[in-house]
Design a protein around this nucleic acid. Structure first.
Lengths: 209, 209, 209, 209
DNA sequence: CATGAATGAGTATTCATTCAT
DNA sequence: CATGAATGAATACTCATTCAT
């Protein structure tokens, strides 16, 4: 279930709250990427966001809340990338392929965000962590759906077991977490292509007779 | 090149130093797994290791050093698992398969360690981080070697591109980092088998004619 | 001399000011009794009073002012209790007795207020504190007066020294400050009676021949 | 039951702990008397005690702990005064009288401490507060005992009801809490005498036939 | 070599007060 | 006169590291 954790704010103007929170999340993301969540100080975030510390706390209850906002933003961002890529496409096989390509690309392009997610999710409090993982799970299920639809359209995946959607949403993360290594081996676009190919082959994907 | 970072010690007796460091690393690993690196205090580690804080600092310069020792231990551990699995085997194809199975198994069994590695590596200072990544790179190359040997023995891998070794050493990590999800879906052994199968299929592995 | 400290207000309409201040004082009293002066926030008080923080500051200059208003209210309240009790009575001996009984009763019934007064008066700024103590002093003198009048009416108080009025206005406070203990020992009405009896005996009160 | 709350310390040397805590309590008492508990800062206390803030926290867990230590010290101090006064006396009537005189004197002499106790006890956390009140209760009971012994020795107290011990241990507090007023009225020794006399008369104390 | 007490720099969070709208 | 968002100063507490014994 997606149960977006509700963060209470001191400020009443709801529109202002969402606007400022988006602003804060983006500023915080920059700070966290640069220094890491633990080393980053609330003051750093406030300065980067152009707010006083006091004001910051009108929109956020704790440092954890900030990390949560950042996570939300980031996971929403790549999910949006994927949806944008398949928007307009109706052919299930094309949709699956486009989704995969978009996700793989996002993992490389948004490498800073992705690394942050994988490094700092454990720093979230239990509640926030669960909310974030729930969001991730929905994303995984989304890919399960796309695979299923392609199958119904006649495609066959003899290699797709129960973990198919998990694998498909995990392996591309390599482009972010192994960036230090891959960067030395080949160009980014090439790497993306290889990942996509590997996944399709792993799934045993082939257009039915 | 793996150039294991040298940590200076106060104590002269070299044997004592290595012995104590191993002891510290294991104690610290327990503490870090339980509380995370940042929440864990030096005092926690000292207590768990049965040392005074002062003594601890005779074998280690900083908290960072401890994390480095832990990393070293952990990466060495799963590398050892793989070597143990292929020890005695001479047939390249069998060796590759055994290595893969052992690695996949280690990723599931040592999930606490693996999660720690992926969450806390970025907390290491530059020098330590490079040393650890170098060790990882060697491990990746080791799998590249195993693949190469299998190929020379007649096996074909039409799907193995430049990233083959990276993929093979990354996807199994999913068993640790997605544990929260996979646990709900299927049994551990089954998951391991699916990962191995996926990888072999992705590589296009087949015994030559 | 009681020179009620004058609190400057932003607002001109004098009637509105006194009305709102009374309202604020009562709301604040509830909040302070519940959470204590230091733990209570201006926001708490504003919410309880149904005002915005900004408005609050139109009637009050500082948090200290609020505490002062509360003090004024509270000391006035028990003083009023006493006056109400002797209102209509003309016989000096009866008046003294009634005043005493009323005061003792007030100390028990208004225990929350009394405790607050004794705990938080020192938190007032010098000026406010002096104003409050002056008010208290007037109250003490009022009892001195009642004793004097009873004496003139023929009653004798061989035990009444210079501190008589102080004692009479202090001992009953025990019903509030030792409430935690007395509550376990006896019923409230009984305790009141014992205090009154003790005081009369201590004064050596007896109706002259 | 007196259940002195146990405060955990970081430091192991038990002797050092008690010594330092006594030192801290005395320094803190000075600071608290001067500025009040809430306005006083941990830094103030540390400076007054000649310790670093860090060291302070090796002997104490929270600011509350410090207040508790101060309370303990203060209540123990006047209890000791009383015991010292009756030490050596065997005649129950003399003992009661001496205890009373000593207590009354302590309330005047230690006025700063007493005021602090009555103003700041409510700032203690529940656990500490209960421990302190338990200590006070024991003190009250001690006076109940002394009265009882005097009665057994033939003294009569027709005015002593259930609250006798409470009254006797409360009224003298006036010398501290009404100091601002009494000081203007009469000399300290004289005030003490009047309080003692009032109490004895209130109790109806008289040596039996 | 071992010990453990001392240290002080570092930081999230709160809240009275102000002021533009 | 009312509102409520902005502010920044203030503070308890933590912990890696040092060093005298």
């Amino acid at each position: 279930m997606a149960q977006p954790r509700i963060i209470a704010a001191q400020v009443k103007d709801a529109e202002l709250v969402t606007e400022r929170r988006a602003h804060i999340a983006q500023a915080a993301a920059r700070v966290f990427r640069a220094k890491g969540f633990h080393s980053a100080t609330i003051r750093d975030v406030a300065v980067e966001a152009g707010l006083s510390q006091g004001s910051l706390y009108n929109y956020v209850r704790t440092k954890d809340d900030i990390l949560y906002l950042v996570h939300q933003d980031m996971t929403a961002a790549y999910a949006r990338d994927v949806e944008a890529a398949i928007d307009g496409l109706t052919e299930p096989r094309a949709r699956l392929h486009a989704a995969l390509a978009a996700f793989v690309h996002a993992m490389r392009e948004r490498h800073g965000d992705i690394a942050l997610i994988y490094q700092e999710t454990h720093a979230l409090g239990a509640e926030s962590r669960h909310a974030v993982l729930a969001q991730t799970q929905i994303f995984i299920e989304r890919f399960g759906q796309l695979i299923e639809e392609a199958r119904e359209a006649g495609m066959t995946f003899p290699g797709a077991g129960k973990l198919a959607a998990d694998i498909v949403t995990f392996l591309p993360v390599m482009l972010s977490l192994r960036r230090w290594h891959i960067r030395d081996v080949m160009a980014g676009a090439e790497a993306e292509a290889e990942i996509v190919a590997f996944l399709m082959r792993g799934l045993g994907a082939s257009d039915g007779p």
